[in-house]
Design a binder for these strands. Structure first.
Lengths: 270, 270
DNA sequence: ACGGGAGTTTGGTATATACAAACCTATATG
DNA sequence: CATATAGGTTTGTATATACCAAACTCCCGT
């Protein structure tokens, strides 16, 4: 008695359609930066009147805010986002270590997690030599493809290969630079290597002139729960520094975070 | 229990009920920290089956995440929250100045905005002497009452007194310490004083042993768009330092942010 | 094995939703 | 100045859908 009205996606659990619609509208607003009413109508395929009602409601609930004629996501989401971070174990366990690593290296350090096949930045810290702010802004705002970054690849390397295949099947390969990985075979080869050496590198695969080194963080239950990475311009991140010193530091940091997670888990197992 | 067409304020706009319900569920999850299914059912007065459908949908959309039997807000909210901040003028215009001020003073510095009569922290930075981390965690996560904090009072002082009255009418006075303001008259008197001297202080009114100094930030259109404050233990924040040096620094920072806002507005007037 | 609490699925129905089209309201256009 | 046009809001209404209750499954403790 499974399929009655063979509908979309997995199985047929009931869903609240209005929430899906609201979600689409929020996504449109986030994507379009500061869209006007009609911008939103054009993005989502819903009648004007309906969109209007949704916007009214979302604004009333604090999910969006209207300033002048433009819509934006609302500050309530800042509060909620903060709440998520503080409840996420890896954030609490890793925040200090990210800062320490940023100070040691002087570069950008990111603490990320995987979410629905993409990479989300939970926390970041910049050392005193860190550059390319714009890029990092974008990175914080929107999820990234896992195969684009060192931290992402480090997490992929821990996943079941079947799962990796599913993620890629779903997303396809998006080429960002001439060095971006664009086929499964290359990716799988690299994942093997990452597993062997314990860390991943990103050699101008996402942004030209930028390299990074990342490694996965595993929780007490032995599953990956995130990754940490150092990012810097190729000019500074090269030679022995790139190939052994930084990887060493990154792995050390990951290790400390893992220990923190372990002890945190002991403190409140429930 | 509720009146049928409970339309607040303007006219009777249509609303999507499902979004309101979803919002209530999200709020419950945030409030209850890591509730189980039944916890949520008890918090919101909706039948089990319905709650189930909502949770399925919200999880599917990334607004919440289930780990084991517990529900939490989902990482999508982190991304969205970050996006809000980066699109908020005062955040972009003030971030650097907050950090500078934190370095200069060595204490906690907060950049906040008003939202529905409450105070939301957009950004914060801690100097090297900053303490009482727990308190600041809470502060970031949940909105605060404006009359509890220096930054909040600084904003209130810029509001129309009628608006202040409305906000208080709605919220009532919640006493946190023996120094908390608990009546309108005292509040209004203080607001006058704040307007006169250009900054507000919080003398252990929210947390015992903690003082702060804050001032409002006005945008190019001459409306308040936020506030900045310095917070430190009473032992360090006293005498001339408390009464003139720090206020001086805070007002200077606010001024710089206002200039940034001005020029930012000129750059892209759209 | 049994009871019961926790969570999930299902049927039916009241109603909330979403469309279309009418309706305003500014801003351009002739 | 009149008119056109796009941007935004409101309303009537058929129908999709959200909601409850109750049946059901699963899991845990005894």
């Amino acid at each position: 008695m499974n399929d009655m009205h063979a509908d979309d996606s997995t199985g047929s659990p009931r869903r609240i359609k209005s929430i899906q619609t609201a979600s689409a509208i929020l996504e449109a607003i986030q994507y379009l930066e500061s869209p006007t009413f009609t911008d939103i109508c054009n993005e989502v395929e819903i009648s004007k009147g309906t969109v209007h009602t949704y916007l009214e409601t979302l604004e009333n609930e604090g999910f969006i805010a209207k300033s002048g004629k433009k819509y934006q996501l609302g500050v309530r989401l800042v509060t909620m986002g903060e709440s998520v971070r503080n409840q996420t174990d890896i954030y609490r366990a890793g925040q200090d270590e990210v800062e320490t690593l940023a100070e040691k290296t002087g570069e950008w350090v990111h603490l990320t997690v995987e979410y629905q096949g993409q990479e989300v930045t939970l926390y970041e810290s910049s050392g005193d030599r860190a550059i390319a702010m714009d890029y990092h802004l974008r990175m914080r705002e929107s999820p990234q493809y896992l195969y684009h970054t060192a931290a992402g690849k480090a997490m992929l390397a821990c996943f079941d290969r079947e799962r990796v295949r599913e993620i890629i099947d779903q997303q396809g390969f998006v080429q960002r630079t001439e060095k971006t990985i664009t086929d499964l075979e290359t990716l799988f080869d690299e994942l093997e290597q990452i597993q062997a050496q314990g860390y991943a590198v990103n050699d101008e695969e996402e942004v030209r002139g930028m390299r990074s080194v990342g490694t996965a963080i595993t929780g007490p239950d032995a599953t990956v729960c995130g990754a940490i990475s150092v990012t810097a311009p190729t000019s500074r991140l090269s030679g022995d520094y790139f190939e052994s010193e930084i990887p060493e530091l990154v792995m050390e940091a990951a290790n400390i975070i893992e220990v923190n997670l372990e002890t945190a888990g002991v403190q409140k197992p429930r």
